[in-house]
């Protein structure tokens, strides 16, 4: 592989753009297939282009035809935590080990400090404003952790208007019922309610902060890999 092509691949990845590297195993020739542009030694047929799009969508790498190896490079999935609270500190290292790029939103500046969250992207904007800026997509999970309707409600409203593949809200059944009531009053429907996992997390009997973090990330994983929030 030419270093120049490798650097273009790394640049696309750094910018969070999906890209496929296609290698002709017979000749060693290579091309990069971006969303709209193909650059490198050869072009791709419409048929190959479709196969490549499918592989990128499923984050998979495989042989296409006899000798074209397609390698998918997709941006990290994102996890947005609303609430720079203690449980967030348990969720973050696990989420990072699972490959998520984590952002924490909390307008309470005493909570969202770099001392408490070293190296983590922090936003002290109001949750709806912060989420709109982050533009959650179908590779983004959002979890509210504050227990405070003033913060959780605007976050959930913004989350429901996005394509986020997972929305979770920490809180008891009672808290969640009241939350859904408020969302109904704000004009959200039953279908919207169904998108919110509350009480958050897979039912594994989690007790400690770390166990709750595990149950949340297990549920996010199930949603991402199986398309369902319970087993």
């Amino acid at each position: 592989m030419r270093l120049s092509l490798l650097e273009k691949l790394l640049a696309a990845r750094a910018e969070g753009r999906p890209v496929a590297l296609v290698t002709d195993l017979a000749t060693g020739l290579q091309s990069l297939v971006h969303e709209k542009v193909v650059e490198g030694d050869f072009g791709v047929t419409a048929e190959e282009s479709e196969a490549i799009a499918n592989l990128l969508a499923t984050e998979a790498s495989a042989l296409v035809g006899d000798s074209h190896f397609v390698q998918s490079f997709t941006p990290s999935p994102r996890l947005v935590l609303v609430g720079a609270v203690h449980i967030a500190q348990a969720v973050i290292p696990m989420a990072q080990a699972l490959g998520y790029a984590v952002t924490v939103i909390d307008p309470r500046q005493a909570f969202a400090t770099p001392e408490r969250f070293p190296g983590i992207a922090l936003s002290t904007d109001w949750p709806d404003t912060a989420l709109e800026a982050l533009q959650p997509d179908s590779r983004t999970a959002i979890v509210t952790l504050t227990h405070d309707p003033k913060l959780d409600d605007p976050a959930l409203s913004a989350a429901l208007k996005s394509d986020a593949f997972y929305i979770g809200a920490l809180g008891s059944r009672k808290t969640h019922a009241r939350r859904l009531q408020r969302l109904t009053e704000a004009g959200f429907t039953e279908a919207d309610h169904q998108r919110i996992q509350g009480p958050v997390g897979l039912a594994i009997g989690a007790k400690t902060q770390a166990e709750i973090a595990l149950s949340i990330l297990a549920q996010i994983t199930a949603m991402r890999r199986l398309g369902k929030a319970s087993l």
């Binding site: 592989m1 270093l3 490798l6 650097e7 691949l9 790394l10 990845r13 290698t23 195993l25 495989a62 042989l63 190896f69 390698q71 490079f73 990072q96 080990a97 490959g99």
Partner: peptide, 30 residues
């Protein structure tokens, strides 16, 4: 922190830029 395959490519590029000979091995199929 687990090293993901992407870190490998960054390192490979850095080695190559530093003037070292570098080869890249990729799992094609299993």
């Amino acid at each position: 922190m687990v090293l993901d395959p992407e870190d490998v490519l960054t390192r490979a590029a850095a080695w190559a830029k530093a003037g070292d000979g570098v080869a890249l091995a990729t799992v094609i199929a299993t």
